[in-house]
Design a protein around this nucleic acid. Structure first.
Lengths: 213, 213
DNA sequence: CCGGCGATAATGAACCGCCATTCAGTTGTC
DNA sequence: GACAACTGAATGGCGGTTCATTATCGCCGG
């Protein structure tokens, strides 16, 4: 329980943790490494966080909160129909590779581990991120822009997975060459919206024998 | 380098490692846990593997080799055009959630970590898996079934990411309810091939000012 | 203003449990 | 009896965490 009023050091520690965890991975990183990077004594970290796990989770929570808040505000400001905002969201996601590579690396690499092994931690922020995406898809379905037959939760997982993997690739590659995430976003939108098949979609009419509504 | 001629125990150890790593994660698993699960003394593991990392990598390599070999054989036997075989590959990938949940969990969760932090390990098997996918996509492009404008490497990453994420979801969920991966595969194929947008694709004709051929 | 006092924040050396790895000894085999 | 396979208790060191000590700060009486 970090009830202290001093905010300064807490922030330094979180920033340092992001850097260290992104570079070395959570399990390979020593608490002492984070302390050194933050310019703080080892023990100080335990004034603000219960233990190493708590540091990881706090970092996750806070960064995700920021990301989600900024995303929501941006989508609000963007306006337009669901597809326009979906495209915007995709661009934002991929832009992390350029805007904040450390954060991108941290999230793409540590997300699964933490979700799975720091049990008793439901990872509500990640769920929330998915929900933003899902709301967009379902809004698109209501507006008739997106086919209604497709399970929105599945679609959302697929889109997120694709984005996450591509972001990881971009991040790892960006140390080498500079990349144009906008072009990448463009291609992915094209894929998600219209598919990769040549020619028109066969049988656009409602599927035959589904269970009667 | 495990030069021993006894195969029996090596296999038992690898099976045990898969189980333990899948359940606890590599970093949380103790070598002693693997030994116990294999019905073997701690030290025996070091007769077959250099160290814990080597055990992880060997497990990865061998399982991926099996997966890829089986996949290649299946695709060969399946025949049909690129899209048919691509669909087949997608089904196979997702079927892991049901056929071998431990393997699915191990791969979806440990892949990124190992790829990134067991450096000096290029992860050639993973690359190979992606290559199978890529060959299918490019064949489809050559046959005119898949739009040629799209960067095959990007498409492949996106598809793999989507599959991986969905497989993870299925795997975690399958402990709770039984799932129908075929239906899921169907939806994903539909998404990849035709997109989620309602109505026809705008401007199906070749893009305007490309560089003259 | 000063200086001293309690409280709070910060330090970092030492502690201690954990676990990967080893190796002297045991078992089994031909 | 020699050789190889195997064992599992012992080891070593690594690193998360603690806590006695020190520094810093806010405050107030003189």
């Amino acid at each position: 329980m970090a009830k202290a009023k001093a905010p300064e050091k807490r922030v330094r520690i979180l920033d340092a943790a992001l850097k260290v965890f992104a570079e070395q991975g959570f399990y390979n990183a020593r608490v002492a490494d984070v302390a050194r990077a933050a310019g703080v004594a080892d023990g100080t970290i335990y004034l603000y966080f219960q233990n190493k796990d708590d540091l990881l989770i706090s970092l996750f929570e806070e960064r995700m909160e920021e990301i989600i808040a900024a995303l929501r505000a941006d989508l609000e400001a963007t306006g337009g129909d669901a597809l326009v905002r979906l495209r915007r969201m995709i661009e934002r996601h991929l832009s992390m590779a350029v805007e904040s590579p450390l954060l991108a690396e941290f999230i793409t690499v540590e997300l699964r581990q933490s979700a799975k092994f720091v049990r008793e931690y439901e990872n509500p922020r990640f769920q929330e991120y998915l929900t933003v995406l899902r709301d967009l898809v379902e809004e698109g379905q209501r507006e008739g822009l997106i086919r209604s037959g497709m399970d929105s939760r599945l679609i959302v997982r697929a889109i997120f997975g694709a984005l996450d993997e591509v972001l990881l690739t971009l991040t790892l590659a960006s140390t080498t060459r500079s990349i144009d995430f906008r072009e990448v976003a463009e291609t992915l939108c094209d894929l998600f919206f219209h598919g990769m098949a040549s020619g028109p979609r066969p049988g656009t009419m409602p599927r035959g024998p589904v269970v009667a509504p």
